[in-house]
Amino acid sequence: MIFATLFKQLVRRPATNPFPVKYMPRSVTGLLGKVAAGKASIHPPIPAPVDLRGKIAYDAEKCIGCQLCVRVCPAKVIEFLPEEKKIRMYVARCTFCAQCVDACPVDALATTPDFLLADTDRFSENLIVQAAPGAAAAAAPEEE
């Protein structure tokens, strides 16, 4: 019988990791506005372990354009840009295996613990990793 556990649990804190807010707010955008203005607070995300395989960081300076990452990527996330001899990654497709990081011979790629990547637009600036940050708009999806 598990009644002892049940009654103990009655006075314990719930095991659920807290959501940003406990209950659905009346207006999500209103709440976000308040948070931005410093009038309300939300629970921070649960800290991730340091070596979590999150979003891939790309150092274009180091990249030599060897295309090894393109060859090993299982999800075909990485596009090779022949003119600049650099790569562009579409994070929305990424499976976070980080095989490209292992494959890179010059350590131009690295994992970050950044995992809060939800977005409504799969081509948003946050979800495209490439050389110059401002160039995302110019290189909008030509295929797809």
């Binding site: 049940l6 009654f7 649990q9 009655l10 314990r12 719930p14 095991a15 659920t16 807290p18 406990k22």
Partner: peptide, 8 residues
């Protein structure tokens, strides 16, 4: 929910 360890 509380007894099950949830927030509810």
């Amino acid at each position: 929910a509380q007894m099950q360890g949830r927030i509810g």
